[in-house]
């Protein structure tokens, strides 16, 4: 189905039914799309990337980027990476387990539908409602907080307001990372053909042999790819953190919020753009590696 690029250049009989020689007309059709994407996607992107290298009067300066390598900004990047990596690993491991539990059930079963739909909601829709979900659960007056306090005398907040700091973010992020893992990993698990398992059986292998030599190696690229995707996802996330953390800006997206709402020093107006560039670089690297691993995995399908 993939229309190879070369056929277009040939534009012989292939040049479609009723095709005329006026090729510039054919190009007109894509103008609205390109104009829109140019205005609302490329222009803002370029503004950020270029702005990262400009001072407040528009001249070139490396100062914005230099500022990222020290102090609170460097701290924010390190914390963002730490949070993203930790929740990516937690999400990947538990998400893979959940995918396996779902995949070994009926393909059109209710369990699978509910888990897939629920995962879609929590992974992509999440945001602010997730912050409130955890406030209702383990906030100062949360359901679980009260329960533990009233029945077991345990004070969840003995160690401080952890829910509104990194540990809280880790917990809430894991809550949307696991579902995202289910979404990306379940198709990979479905790609495992029952014949492989049966072939191992008929050759004298066990369940362990199968996972060790066949299922595991086949899934490894998909698993690593998903790990990167989860990392990028957590790294990009803003809404949950913004709703949960109103004091201070421990991670990069919240630093950007600060920059946008005017919490920067004079002469550093473009610092937000430099932070943005930094985020794009990190996410692009993760997504690039993800694409490579995806291609590797697709080859085996």
């Amino acid at each position: 189905m993939v229309a190879p690029v070369s056929t277009a250049a040939g534009s012989g009989p292939q040049a479609a039914p009723g095709g005329s020689g006026r090729s510039w007309l054919a190009w007109l059709v894509v103008v609205p799309f390109l104009a829109y994407v140019g205005t609302f996607l490329l222009y803002p992107t370029v503004l950020v990337l270029a702005g990262a290298f400009q001072d407040s009067s528009g001249g070139f300066t490396p100062d914005n980027l230099a500022a990222l390598t020290e102090g609170v900004y460097l701290q924010a990047f390190l914390r963002s990476v730490e949070l993203s990596a930790l929740t990516a690993v937690l999400g990947a491991v538990f998400g893979a387990l959940l995918s396996w539990a779902v995949a070994s059930g009926k393909p059109e079963g209710l369990l699978r539908r509910v888990v897939v739909a629920g995962s879609g909601v929590l992974a992509q829709f999440g945001g602010v409602p997730l912050a409130f979900a955890f406030l209702a659960t383990v906030g100062f007056q949360g359901f679980v907080t009260r329960f533990l306090r009233d029945w077991f005398g345990i004070d969840l907040f003995a160690g401080g307001a952890w829910l509104f700091e990194l540990p809280g973010l880790t917990l809430v992020y894991t809550f949307f990372q696991i579902p995202l893992m289910v979404i990306v990993f379940l198709p990979a698990l479905d790609g495992l053909r029952p014949q492989w398992r049966e072939a191992v059986d008929s050759l004298g292998g066990s369940a362990w042999t199968y996972w060790r030599h066949v299922g595991g190696p086949i899934l490894l690229p998909a698993f690593l790819g998903a790990l990167l995707l989860l990392f990028a996802n957590a790294f990009s996330a803003y809404a949950t953190a913004a709703a949960l953390v109103s004091q201070g800006s421990p991670i990069v997206p919240l630093q950007i919020r600060g920059a946008l709402t005017g919490e920067v020093l004079l002469g550093q107006e473009n610092l937000g753009k430099a932070l943005g560039l930094g985020m794009v670089v990190v996410v692009a690297v993760a997504m690039g590696l993800y694409a490579v691993l995806q291609r590797r995995f697709a080859r085996w399908q």
Binding site: L41, P44, T45
Partner: peptide
Amino acid sequence: LVEFLCLLPITIPAIVLVVGMAPL
């Protein structure tokens, strides 16, 4: 090209996009 453009927003976090969109 179109595929690249359409998938580009995955690589650009919304929080970054909004920085560029503010002046727009």
